Simulated assay, not measured.
Amino acid sequence: MANGSRQAAWEFFGAELKRRREESGFTQVELGARVFVSGGYIGQFEQAIRKPQLDVARRIDETLRTDGIFERLCRKLIDDRRYADYFVKAAELETLATKICEFAPALIPGLLQTPAYARAVTLAMNPFAPEETVDEKVAGRVERGRLLKDATRPVYWAILHENVLRIPVGGPAVMAEQLERVAELARDRSVLVQVLPYAAGAYPVMTGDLRLMEFDDAPATAYTEAVYSGNLLDDPAVVQRAQSAYDLLRADALSPELSLALIQSAAEDFGRCASTT
């Protein structure tokens, strides 16, 4: 499903939710209380600003007695090939998060990727995939990135290992554009980015990516990713350990100012390399 038609479908979901809610005599606050989210979230669902999780859609059906229509719509809209099966739930949750903290040991996080960088990553992971599948996956990355431009965007903090700045994904021109993009977002204070330098040595999370997500109306979660697998963790004790690990990464990382200077320097190096090839 193309991005425009997907957004139109979510807008239909929101309009139908508003119509059914009003027919049932509920205010946004009243419906939110019945399905365990805030009234503000119901309003954002109706405006297609945020997308409900599947269990919320199911509770809406039960409360409004809508015979499963919102669950079916939700399943249809999230059932696509843009994301790996193990990442779908995390992708849903990031649209609801008020704060996202990521550690990336090898690649630019998906929310920050340019289309060219996303394409290079997708082709590396799916070398025999048909063009349509590659286009869908790249579109999914780009669509996710729009989250950081929304009026309700979450606080976003990324720690990038220095590897991320040095691995020439897609070649020098692609890397120069990608790192300039990260630097631009940092300069605009849309995101906060730090770099964990090689000099830091061993670090607490050496087995893959780590993402922490916080919410207004739900406990924090942690998401870890390795080769062809991902784990969404909601046990409070485990999430607390992940948060402690992230705090240690922050302590070893360069300051935001020094990090920005290093990112900008790497972008310029790749730019010079691209201009000579």
Score class of each variant (00 low, 15 high):
Y83M: 12
Y83A: 14
A84T: 04
D85I: 11
Y86V: 06
F87T: 09
V88F: 01
V88N: 06
A90S: 14
A91W: 01
A91Y: 02
E92T: 11
E92G: 14
E94L: 05
L96D: 08
A97I: 05
A97P: 00
A97G: 01
A97Y: 01
T98A: 10
T98G: 12
C101M: 14
E102W: 08
F103C: 07
A104V: 00
P105Q: 10
P105N: 08
A106R: 10
L107Y: 13
L107V: 15
L107Q: 08
I108P: 00
G110F: 01
G110V: 03
L111C: 07
Q113E: 02
Q113P: 07
T114P: 04
A116I: 02
A116D: 15
A116E: 15
A118L: 06
R119M: 02
A120D: 01
T122Q: 03
T122I: 04
A124M: 13
A124E: 13
M125V: 11
N126P: 00
N126T: 11
P127W: 05
P127D: 06
P127V: 10
P130A: 12
E132P: 02
V134F: 04
V134P: 01
E136K: 12
V138H: 00
V138K: 02
A139P: 03
A139Y: 04
G140N: 09
G140A: 12
R141K: 13
R141I: 02
V142C: 00
V142E: 04
E143M: 14
E143Q: 15
E143T: 14
R144C: 05
G145N: 08
G145D: 06
R146I: 03
L147E: 05
L148G: 10
L148N: 10
L148V: 11
L148P: 04
K149G: 12
R153I: 11
V155R: 13
Y156F: 15
W157H: 15
W157T: 08
L160F: 01
H161K: 07
E162P: 06
V164K: 01
V164W: 04
R166N: 12
R166F: 08
I167V: 15
V169L: 07
G170C: 04
G170T: 09
G171P: 03
P172S: 05
P172K: 08
M175S: 00
M175I: 01
A176S: 15
L179Y: 10
L179D: 03
L179N: 05
E180Y: 12
V182C: 08
A183L: 03
A183Q: 09
E184W: 03
E184I: 07
L185G: 01
A186C: 09
R187T: 14
D188M: 13
D188G: 10
R189S: 13
V191S: 10
L192W: 09
V193D: 04
V193P: 05
V195L: 06
P197T: 02
P197A: 07
P197F: 00
Y198N: 09
Y198A: 11
A200L: 10
G201R: 10
A202S: 13
Y203P: 05
P204A: 11
M206L: 13
M206W: 11
G208Y: 06
G208K: 08
L210A: 08
R211D: 10
M213T: 11
D216W: 09
D217H: 14
D217K: 08
A218H: 11
A220W: 02
T221K: 14
T221A: 15
T221N: 12
Y223P: 06
Y223F: 15
